[in-house]
Amino acid sequence: MAAADTEPYRREKSIQLRSSSSGLYNNLSVLVPPGRPLARLSTVHGASASVVSTTTDGLGSSHRQLPAREGGTALSTPVLTQAAWCVLPSRVLLVLTSQKGIQMYEADGSIMVYWHALDVAEHPPAEAVFARGIAAAGGRFVCVGTSSGLVLVFDIPPRGTNVTVSQVLEQHRDAITDIAAELGRAPDGAGDLVTADDAGTLCVWSSGEEFTLLSKIPAFGCTCSSVKLWNGLVAAGYGNGQIRLYEAASGALRAQVSAHARWIYALDLAPQTGKLLSGAEDSFVHVWKLSRNLDTDDVEIQHCHAECVTDTQVCGARFCDPEGNSFAVTGYDLSEIFRYGRA
């Protein structure tokens, strides 16, 4: 790890929620449409997702609550596991996952475009069934993970509701925790999608008409809760507080750092600068800087900033701009979203 640097961020006006945030991995999504003053943020709690549209200064906001769909049975109210915006060249969708299935909405949450029910009958009664892990990939696909280790690839039309499952990726044996797509410029053969599971196994894929497996990074006895992919590097956060950097093409370990004292719940990456954001159970949020020199093949991770979110089990952390000059944080049972900007 490179020597520490200082890039101060200051606390800004918080965004109030109508409910709190559940203690789930990656429980915050942020959408900042280019050239628009409004940002959208989403977090889930129980059977509903909170979608907040807010001005960049946080002074004005509107709220929408999206319920989990029952899925044809009213025996129990399904619990949402994640909400994330998927940005495709032709459209932006808000995707919700739950114990019953996968819901896709227009970006503002006003219209449900598609519903995919999970086949609960195929699983033993004592086995938990849910979807989790959401990412756009390959220009027209949305990939969603499941508790059985499958990754469903949805082919998204430029408009309308004719969404189809085009492929099912079958490499994981444990529940999917997170999925991420390439955010920078991948070197040739490096792949553009990474999937992670509860055991800690990572799979790197190349998207196309058919997704193909490029490398499989074995587990080492610890859950991988969050992953990002940037310039052919996989950044992975683990339950032991470590962040590890791997080569996407080969799966080789390039760097590791003991980033947190407790379980990492969220990672995010600013694609234009290579800044990495990490949040964990230890109440800390850290900003790191990733760099790779394509001429010398050197990979570095540099610490830039530490923020203690007092008495908060951080469960979501996201940059609010592609440069990484601002970020937002959610915490378990916290009824607001904390915002930070460069001092």
Rank of each mutant, 00 (worst) to 15 (best):
G35Y: 10
S50F: 02
A68E: 11
G149F: 01
A47E: 10
A196T: 02
A181Q: 06
D321S: 10
P37A: 03
I15Q: 10
Q82H: 03
V257W: 04
C224I: 05
L59D: 15
A306E: 14
H303K: 09
G72N: 04
G232F: 02
G316S: 11
T54K: 02
G324H: 01
I102A: 07
G241K: 12
A252S: 14
V314T: 11
H172P: 05
I156G: 09
A117Y: 01
H45M: 03
A219T: 08
A128M: 06
G239R: 06
G71R: 12
V44S: 08
C304L: 15
F211C: 15
C315H: 00
T195N: 03
A107M: 12
V120W: 10
Y332L: 13
D178H: 07
D268Y: 04
D197R: 06
V144K: 02
R342G: 14
T146A: 10
I134H: 05
S20W: 01
D282Q: 07
I102T: 06
W85F: 10
V79I: 15
N231F: 01
L38W: 14
I15P: 07
G133L: 02
A131L: 06
E247T: 02
A137C: 15
T310A: 13
E7A: 14
A2C: 02
L267E: 09
E307W: 01
V234H: 02
G138C: 05
A252V: 04
C143M: 04
N240P: 11
H260S: 07
H286M: 15
A121V: 10
V204E: 00
M104R: 01
P187V: 08
V120N: 12
S226I: 05
N27S: 12
R159G: 06
E70I: 07
S283I: 00
G239M: 11
Y105A: 08
S42Y: 03
G241H: 07
A219I: 00
P33L: 12
R11S: 14
M104C: 02
I337M: 08
R11N: 04
I134D: 05
G160W: 04
S98C: 05
G232C: 11
G251I: 07
S76E: 13
V153Y: 09
E281K: 14
A117P: 04
C320E: 14
R132Y: 01
V204W: 00
P37Q: 08
P34I: 11
S76H: 12
V329C: 07
A199T: 07
G232E: 08
L17D: 03
S98R: 07
V163K: 08
S19V: 03
H305R: 15
G184F: 00
A190E: 00
L152I: 11
A175N: 02
E122M: 13
S48F: 09
A248Q: 10
S215N: 04
A49Y: 00
A343L: 13
S278L: 09
